[in-house]
């Protein structure tokens, strides 16, 4: 019954994916929230909604990380998303 090993990544790819799942997802989640708060007329509801939505989004990205096959692709997606959010926040 255990998962079939032929589908699983190993070594650096695995390390890269786990890092992306935990840290990468966290950074993207927070940046998305802050970007929405920045564009909203009133940032208070956005900030307080993040008390639960942040965890749901964080875990959503975690699952997505494992869903995507290539680790570099995951990082690219997170890089682009973060870049877009940073642009909204600071421009």
């Amino acid at each position: 019954m255990p998962a079939k090993a032929k589908y699983l990544s190993s070594g650096w790819t695995r390390f890269s994916k786990v890092t992306a799942a935990i840290l990468g997802s966290y950074v993207v989640t927070m940046l998305i929230h802050i970007a929405i708060a920045k564009t909203a007329v009133n940032d208070t509801p956005v900030l307080l909604t993040s008390a639960y939505s942040a965890f749901l989004l964080w875990v959503g990205f975690m699952v997505l990380t494992f869903f995507i096959k290539k680790a570099w692709y995951v990082w690219a997606v997170y890089g682009v998303l973060s870049g877009m959010c940073l642009a909204i926040i600071y421009l």
């Binding site: 966290y26 927070m30 940046l31 929230h33 802050i34 708060a37 920045k38 940032d43 900030l47 993040s50 008390a51 639960y52 942040a54 965890f55 749901l56 926040i89």
Partner: peptide, 20 residues
């Protein structure tokens, strides 16, 4: 979700507080 909120409140608030 609520357990994560109580445990990781700082982690969620910190970036917003710093930036906003």
């Amino acid at each position: 979700v609520t357990g994560a909120f109580f445990g990781l409140l700082t982690l969620i608030l910190l970036p917003s507080v710093l930036i906003l």
